[in-house]
Simulated scan of single mutants.
Amino acid sequence: MIAIISAMNIENEAILALCHDVKEKTIGNKKFYEAVLGDEKVICCLSGCGKVNATISTTLLLEHFPVDAILNIGTAGGLKEDENVLDCVISTSVVEHDFDTSALDGEAGKGAFFEADPLLVNTAKTVAEEMKIAYHVGLIASGDQFISHDEQISKILNDFPESLCSEMEAGGIAHCAAHYGVPFVVIRSLSDIAVKEGNEMDFEEYAKKASERSAQFCEKCVARYVKK
């Protein structure tokens, strides 16, 4: 069974709208939805905001359901000038950019890294190409901070210059998936590009477009991954 973890309720609802045989189950005040997407069984849930909430959701998910792989979808802020709003970022790895034990461990103590599953990464790339979605593949920076100030952006890019985007949940999900030995990939739609001007979109308009597209993306990813 593939788990689909969404960052926003609108994303979760868009996926469930494509599903049938939906069964809701509440565990530890978190709601999980067993369903059939296309021809495949999936389990859907919300991550909650921030790495700790995301870790709680992922732990409950992996402890109570037979999960073979995790797709994590959501929104991020872009960190590269060649990116545009509604572009897709596919993780090869995730770094917790606010994890820092450098006072004890030196530079090696900056960041906690987790590698995405190559098969899931390639599946996501194939689907993005099929759907004609502009995409970028690489490092996603994750931390318990909404990144909006120049000094925050500069710190991330100074510490982890390969970062393509920043967001708040992937680190917890990736950390938890690695602990349980479950393959994962993080897929983020870009709502803004921090290093460019004139790239804004009304968030409600963005969220509707991104959520509907993400749901279709997930359906295609699940079908392709299961067949491989």
Results as ranks from 00 to 15, higher is better:
E11C: 06
C45W: 00
F184K: 06
H136R: 08
I10A: 14
G111R: 12
R224F: 14
V222P: 01
V36K: 13
K125N: 00
T123C: 15
L18I: 00
I5V: 15
I187P: 08
L18V: 01
N158P: 04
A194M: 05
G78F: 05
N9F: 07
T59C: 04
G74W: 04
S214D: 06
A14C: 12
E34F: 01
V195D: 04
Q152C: 05
A112F: 02
K220Q: 01
G78L: 07
V195R: 11
E205H: 07
A223C: 00
I90W: 01
V185C: 14
G111F: 02
S91R: 04
A17F: 09
M8Q: 00
A124R: 02
E63D: 07
L157S: 11
F146Q: 13
Q145V: 05
A223N: 11
V85H: 09
E169R: 06
E204Q: 15
V226I: 14
L120W: 08
D82H: 12
D98W: 02
T75C: 14
I73M: 12
E83L: 08
I147P: 10
M168V: 09
H20K: 14
K209L: 06
N9Q: 10
F114V: 00
T59K: 02
G172Q: 10
P183Y: 13
F203Q: 13
R224K: 15
I2A: 02
D68S: 15
A128L: 11
S211V: 01
L60H: 03
L79A: 13
E34R: 08
S191L: 04
T126F: 08
D87P: 01
A174T: 13
Y135C: 05
G106M: 07
T59I: 02
I27W: 05
S47M: 11
E130T: 10
I15P: 04
I27Q: 02
R224Y: 11
E204G: 08
G198C: 14
A7G: 00
V137K: 06
C165Q: 00
I43V: 15
E81V: 03
E219H: 09
V67F: 06
L139D: 01
I147E: 09
N12H: 08
V22Q: 01
L60F: 03
I187K: 02
G143K: 11
T123K: 12
I147Q: 14
N53D: 15
L71V: 04
S154A: 14
K30Y: 07
L71W: 05
S91T: 06
D144H: 01
D82E: 15
L60P: 13
A76R: 00
L16Q: 13
N199S: 13
D82S: 11
H20W: 11
D98K: 03
Q216K: 12
D117R: 04
E162F: 12
A124I: 02
G106Y: 03
A174N: 09
A141G: 01
R213D: 07
N199A: 15
E151L: 12
N199T: 15
T55S: 15
C45A: 07
A207C: 09
G28Q: 08
I70W: 01
V137N: 11
S214H: 04
M168I: 04
G198S: 06
K132M: 10
T123W: 13
E130Y: 05
A177V: 13
E151Y: 15
P183A: 06
D87R: 05
I133N: 00
E96C: 11
D202W: 10
S211D: 01
